[in-house]
Design a binder for these strands. Structure first.
Lengths: 134, 134
DNA sequence: TATAAAATAGTAATTATTATCATTTTTGAA
DNA sequence: TTCAAAAATGATAATAATTACTATTTTATA
């Protein structure tokens, strides 16, 4: 795998963003900063890097896949209101893989947990709203 | 929500299949048994029923969404080899939601866990293969 | 039974993603 | 440094999954 200017830019953009971006988002950001990189190149590189384990691909969130520069085991929360994605630590579910392998007899390579709900900020916004209304 | 022949058929097909089918699969099965129901109708009904909680939609497995007639909390395993989907009991991760809410301060409505790996059958097939070869 | 609400079929449209391929860039050896 | 092979890119076509649209049909019920 060669080290192209485009791949470096894409990885940089992923690392500088806390938002767990989609391919389309990264493409848009790069376009805004005048790095005209093709959308196909963004997809190609993100998926290659996910394949090698350099980054992680997050599925099951929205319609599209998102990507994460943090490759350590952790989980994700998707806020229905603001549509942001948050990290949750893997400690909330200790020994999950071991237990799953035990009860099933399957060999588990990867797993992911996705939570859906309302984040702290959005809950607090709602509370304020209720106070004002009531 | 009215009770159409088509919706009944779709739900029946889902319930009679252990395979966690996709919309396209259900459509194909119905076509084979001469129930000519439109693919759009299959999608519309599955998503409506998932919305009301009558069935469950499974994301993050393959390219497409799959559906589950079992609405009790449980998790899923996807075998990379045979591409089948298996159930795993929720007991492998006790108090998961409570812990996630605790560490985050978020309000969690739903969550799902998807494991990827190799199922028991496929592992055993491989073992046999190794024996024959060696 | 008449009627309003809901649902359907069939197809067009949309969205996300991958494939294709001619051109350009990168890399490593001579 | 130069050069050839391998890898990557950009632009666009193609595909796959899903949703939108709309004229018609079905369902529930007053």
């Amino acid at each position: 795998m060669n080290f192209s200017r485009q791949r470096r830019k894409i990885l940089e953009t992923l690392q500088n963003n806390v938002v767990h971006p989609s391919a389309e988002y990264i493409h848009r950001v790069l376009k805004e900063e005048k790095s005209n990189i093709s959308l196909a190149t963004v997809y190609r590189n993100l998926n290659q890097m996910a394949e090698t384990g350099e980054i992680k691909k997050i599925n099951g969130l929205e319609d599209s896949s998102h990507y994460d520069h943090n490759t350590h085991l952790h989980y994700h929360f998707f806020c229905k209101k603001c549509r942001r994605i948050f990290d949750l630590p893997s400690e909330i579910s200790p020994n999950l893989v071991r237990k799953a392998e035990m009860v099933s007899g399957f060999k588990i390579d990867t797993h992911e947990i996705v939570f859906h709900g309302e984040c702290k900020d959005c809950r607090e916004d709602k509370k304020e709203g209720e106070l004002q209304d009531g």
